[in-house]
Each structure stands twice: as structure tokens, then as C-alpha cells.
């Protein structure tokens, strides 16, 4: 009988056998973090829920291939799956041309700031998608997962210097990707 305190690897072994109760425990444990991540990337509650559901369906399908002695920890693998799916989904959203947008409904102060914030959000997410997988995951854990560098190192199974190096290279690459998108000064989107 699977308990709520069972280890992730034991849960995955049970899920591979088709154990729904184990799958439920696994989802309850990780869903809040994954929904938060997906919502930060997609900027939408509905999209976030869809992305996380699809990611869990992938877990159900691939559970038999999960190796407890493999290089990845389950939370890191889940984070990576959801992050990539959320970036893909965000990229599929085509912004409407400005001239078709009409007059803004919300004329409250701060409306322009909100628009700029959305533009900033889109540029960062798209640029993040251009980074190598390891840099993208490290940056995402650090900024979106609100982890400290030592916490990110633990989650990634790397040393602290290795994660710090990934973060430095990731930030440099992200700035370059933003520049490629025509954002030469961060003030352009702030």
C-alpha cells in the first residue's frame, strides 16, 4: 500500500504498474510547484493547467522507463518537462497587431506599465527557449522556482560552482538572445 510519505522513486515504480493511488500522491506532491512554474512562463492560468496536465500524462506513459538510479531527480525532470512544454505553448501564442487591438478597456493608471510588462515577459520567455537545456533549467529553477543557487545545485545534482557557472553563462546567453530580438537596452522592456 502506497503512503503519502512514499519516496518519489517508489511512487514512480508503482505508477509504472498502473497504480492510480500512487499517481495521485505523486501529482498532489508536485502539482503546485509545476503549476506555478507553468503559469509564470505562459502567463495564463488555463494554459498552465493544460501544460501541467499534459506533462502528467507523459509521466503516466513513460513511468516504466524511469530509472531510480539514473542521473536525473524526479522534481528536476518534471521541472524540465513542464518548462519546455510551457515555452512551446507560449511561443504558439501570436500577439495581435497593435492597430487591431482597439482602445484599451482599462484606463486605470498603470495600464501602459502592464502592457510593457507583458512585452517584457514574452521577450524573456522566448529568449529562454533559445538557450541550451542545462542553462535554461538552471536559470528557470533560480528565477521561476525561486530557489537559491545551493538549492538549485541540490536539485540538479551538481556542485555549487558548476551551477554558478551555468547561471553566469545562462544570463550571458539570455542577454544575447534578447539583443537578437532587438532589445539592446533592458530599459526598452522595463
Amino acid at each position: 500500500m502506497i503512503s503519502d510519505e512514499a519516496r518519489d522513486d517508489d511512487l514512480m515504480a508503482a505508477v509504472a504498474q498502473g497504480d492510480r493511488r500512487a499517481f495521485q500522491v505523486l501529482m498532489r506532491r508536485h502539482a503546485p510547484t509545476l503549476i506555478a512554474l507553468a503559469q509564470r512562463v505562459t502567463g495564463s492560468e488555463a494554459d498552465a493547467d493544460e501544460v501541467v496536465q499534459e506533462s502528467f500524462l507523459k509521466v503516466w506513459t513513460l513511468a516504466g522507463r524511469w530509472r531510480a538510479d539514473g542521473p536525473a531527480r524526479l522534481p528536476t525532470w518534471l521541472h524540465r518537462v513542464v518548462l519546455n512544454a510551457a515555452i512551446d505553448r507560449r511561443r504558439r501564442v501570436v500577439p495581435a497587431p497593435l492597430e487591431e487591438a482597439g482602445d484599451p478597456v482599462d484606463e486605470a493608471p498603470g495600464g501602459l506599465e502592464a502592457v510593457m510588462s507583458r512585452q517584457c515577459h514574452r521577450a524573456v520567455v522566448e529568449s529562454l527557449g533559445d538557450l541550451p537545456e542545462r542553462q535554461r533549467t538552471a536559470l528557470s529553477l533560480f528565477y521561476f522556482g525561486d530557489l537559491t543557487a545551493p538549492q538549485a545545485a541540490t536539485q540538479l545534482g551538481l556542485t555549487l560552482p558548476a551551477v554558478e557557472s551555468l547561471l553566469v553563462r545562462g544570463k550571458r546567453a539570455l542577454r544575447h538572445a534578447l539583443t537578437v530580438r532587438g532589445i539592446t537596452r533592458l530599459g526598452d522592456v522595463l
Binding site: M27, R28, A31
Partner: peptide, 18 residues
């Protein structure tokens, strides 16, 4: 850090998702 913050995820939302 200015990317949209995420409010605490409600438990009933998690249950609906499951």
C-alpha cells in the same frame, strides 16, 4: 524578478487538475 508573480496555488485547483 518582474515576471508575473504566482499567487499561492489553491488546493481545489490542484484537485481539479488531477
Amino acid at each position: 524578478r518582474r515576471l508575473p508573480p504566482v499567487a499561492e496555488i489553491a488546493p481545489d485547483r490542484v484537485e481539479r487538475l488531477i
